[in-house]
């Protein structure tokens, strides 16, 4: 891959990361917040792959596979908790679920 291509890729990763962060801050539905976090994680994964491409080593790709595995584990626990939340409150809006503050 050419250096310009890699630089553009890093730019894309940064944009994806910011998009995910913006989604996390703006969205009020827990499922969408979880989705936004996934976008942020995948942006990090993309940056690792590009790092691997820049240095011609497989380390970046290995890290990406770790990220995939971890994201899957996180989503499975997250969805289980979200199910419980929905059974209890009949809503997924974080403003309505929020009972503790101070």
């Amino acid at each position: 891959m050419t250096p310009t291509f890699i630089e553009q890729g890093m730019l894309l990763a940064a944009v994806l990361f910011c998009l995910g962060l913006a989604g996390l801050l703006i969205r009020r539905n827990i499922i969408f917040m979880l989705l936004s976090v996934e976008i942020m994680l995948n942006a990090a994964g993309l940056a690792f792959i590009l790092g691997g491409a820049r240095w011609g080593s497989a380390d970046g790709q290995a890290m990406f596979i770790f990220i995939l595995a971890m994201a899957a584990a996180e989503v499975s626990v997250g969805l289980a908790l979200i199910l419980k939340i929905f059974q209890k409150y009949k809503t997924l809006d974080t403003d309505e679920i929020n009972r503790m503050n101070g």
Binding site: L24, V37, M40, A43, A47, G60, E74, G78
Partner: peptide, 15 residues
């Protein structure tokens, strides 16, 4: 949600 977001920050920093 917050720990996953912080993990994303950490990973992007590592990357």
């Amino acid at each position: 949600i917050l720990a996953a977001a912080s993990a994303a920050f950490l990973l992007f920093g590592m990357a």
